[in-house]
């Protein structure tokens, strides 16, 4: 697997994202590697989430949003005419800022996505497996039929992760998954991410630098340019970004002199 390091799973080429005529993100080039945790950090409003959501075409739902440039997933541009965005989202799952379980039972929350995607094996096993993978099984195994909304925030977010895993994606996008959680729940999610990175590639947007430093392998630093458009300033190994940033802006940001 180590040789995969050189082979990116996602290659972003000269990506710009527009909301109507406003250019929200400008000329981003980025390579995401397999089975790594890639963090995207930067001040608020710099387009981190916008970039993340473009990776599985969630921006399609925002009226007036459009992109320029390419996002290659295994060498295939996911914005090509012949690509089905629904298929993209099946392979690139997403966990949102606020936990958003369906108002159904825990079991159904996980089973629904898998069933919809044509899963035909033993559903009970799949539910148990994904809940174990999401480190939630021990807490909920006796109450699988309970409404998911009755779980705590941290449990809900892990359920959302389990739900995404059940669809068997290759990549999991996480949009500030811990911003609504307390520190203990946050720590659990970070441990879980580490665990999951053996089998999945994870891209996480976070405004919490400690989280990026603790939990990620690669870090991309974004900021806003003078047109208020998001630009990528620096990208590299997390250890390098946080200990030896090449760019002055990155250094200012991570040392707290900016934003």
């Amino acid at each position: 697997m180590t040789e995969n390091k050189n082979q990116p799973i996602i290659t972003v080429k000269d990506l710009s994202i527009f909301y109507k005529t406003f250019r929200a993100v400008k000329n981003v080039d980025l390579e995401i590697f397999e089975n790594k945790i890639t963090a995207i950090i930067g001040p608020s409003g710099c387009g981190k989430s916008t970039v993340l959501r473009s990776f599985n075409r969630m921006n399609d739902f925002i009226p007036g949003a459009s992109i320029q440039g390419n996002i290659l997933f295994h060498d295939k541009n996911i914005y090509d005419e012949d690509v089905d965005p629904v298929q993209v989202r099946r392979m690139i799952g997403m966990v949102f800022q606020k936990p958003n379980p369906f108002p159904k039972s825990i079991y159904e929350n996980i089973a629904w996505g898998a069933k919809m995607n044509g899963f035909s094996g033993n559903m009970d096993d799949l539910v148990e497996k994904t809940l174990q993978d999401a480190a939630l099984w021990d807490e909920v195994k006796d109450e699988l039929n309970k409404n998911a909304l009755s779980l705590s925030g941290g449990q809900q977010q892990r359920l959302c992760i389990a739900r995404a895993l059940a669809v068997k994606p290759e990549i999991i996008l996480m949009d500030e998954p811990c911003s609504a959680l307390d520190p203990i729940a946050t720590l659990k999610i970070e441990d879980l991410m580490r665990e999951l990175s053996h089998n999945y590639s994870i891209i996480i947007v976070t405004h919490n630098m400690q989280q990026a430093a603790r939990a990620s392998d690669m870090t991309a630093f974004f900021t806003m340019d003078e047109d208020r458009a998001g630009v990528m300033v620096e990208y590299g190994l997390t250890t390098q970004i946080f200990t030896n940033p090449k760019n002055k802006q990155t250094e200012d940001y991570i040392t707290g002199r900016f934003g």
């Binding site: 969630m58 739902f61 298929q87 799952g93 958003n100 369906f102 919809m116 995404a164 669809v167």
Partner: peptide, 10 residues
């Protein structure tokens, strides 16, 4: 709720 569903590839 819609995003959760779309995010799963619905």
């Amino acid at each position: 709720l819609r995003q959760a569903s779309y995010g799963l590839g619905a």
